[in-house]
Simulated assay, not measured.
Amino acid sequence: MKKMAFIDMEGVLIPELWKHFSTVLNIPELAVTTREVADYKSLMNFRINILKENNIPLTKLVELIKEIDASPNAKEFLEYLKNNKKFEVKIISDCFYEFLDPFFDKLNLPINNAYCHNLEINSNGYIENVIYNRKKGKHEIIVNYQKEKVPLKNSIAIGDAFNDFTMLHLVDHGFLFQPSEEVSKNSPFYFHKVESYQEIIQYLTYNRVA
């Protein structure tokens, strides 16, 4: 029986990339994330327009991403899930393969275990559009496993923002990781709010999720 761990990247395993862009580029508007804005497509259109207005191509963003490390203990946490609890880890992120590629090696994650989006780049090297690989939300990945009759008993999901709610709904154990006050306030009571990987490990151990 398969036991899946569906995990977001930004805000859970790596820092929020757009907040890093905002700080380094000194553009406060780029600090807004799905912790504050639930409509991801509107947020991305907003970001793309800001990047164009400030003449920032994709290559510049990739340079900045190379300066960022994964969150402390993220790799060890994933290894624990895989080796100690026998989870099959699947990344479900509304970020982009073009941004996340450096982190797959750092976290020992096969790229074919990740479900992300792609960026459309124009002839001048600027982000023109997002090629969405899901139409409605992160839950679509889990629903596809269900349609394939993959048993998902005791599977978990970990996210930090509004756009993670739909996937947390569909598993036996949904974790909100270091959520903002707004996200926490608007989340269902049955989501488990945690501040560290250790809290998740303690929960899995105490509740014998194995």
Rank of each mutant, 00 (worst) to 15 (best):
K106T: 12
V150F: 05
M44T: 12
S196P: 12
T33M: 04
K75R: 15
E148I: 06
N118C: 11
N26E: 15
K136M: 06
D39G: 08
E10P: 00
I200Y: 12
Y145N: 11
L107I: 00
D105I: 02
K193G: 07
V32T: 15
K86Q: 14
L13E: 00
N26M: 11
I91Q: 01
Y80P: 12
V183N: 02
E88M: 14
E63Q: 04
V171S: 07
A210M: 04
F87E: 10
F191T: 01
P188K: 03
P15T: 09
G11Y: 01
Y203H: 07
S155Y: 05
N163R: 06
P188A: 00
C95P: 05
P151A: 02
S22T: 10
D172N: 09
I131W: 12
D164N: 10
E88D: 15
T205P: 06
M167I: 11
I65C: 06
K52I: 11
Y80V: 04
E79Y: 04
A38P: 15
I111K: 07
F6C: 06
K185R: 14
M1S: 13
M44K: 14
G159C: 09
K135D: 03
I65M: 02
L30F: 04
E67Q: 15
E148H: 12
N83K: 09
I111D: 05
G11K: 03
Y80H: 09
M9L: 03
K147G: 02
F77M: 07
S71K: 08
F104S: 07
K60S: 05
K60A: 11
N26G: 12
L170W: 06
S196N: 05
A38S: 15
N108C: 11
I91L: 02
F99T: 11
R47S: 02
D101C: 08
Y145W: 09
R35M: 07
M167Y: 05
N207V: 10
Y40L: 15
P151L: 00
M1R: 07
E120R: 14
E63I: 00
K52F: 11
Y126V: 13
H173K: 08
I92G: 06
T59R: 04
L170R: 08
L107N: 06
I7N: 06
K185E: 15
N84E: 11
I131E: 13
F46G: 09
V209P: 08
L13N: 03
M4D: 07
M44F: 10
L204W: 02
F165D: 01
M167L: 10
A74L: 01
F46C: 10
Y190S: 08
L107F: 00
N113E: 13
R134S: 12
P188R: 01
I65K: 05
G137C: 05
Y126D: 15
E79T: 08
P28E: 14
H20G: 03
D160H: 07
N163H: 10
H169L: 12
N54V: 00
L43H: 05
P57F: 06
R134K: 08
I131M: 10
N45R: 13
V130T: 05
V183C: 01
N54E: 13
W18C: 12
E79W: 01
L43E: 07
R134A: 08
I7T: 02
M9S: 00
H117V: 08
K75C: 13
A114K: 06
P151F: 00
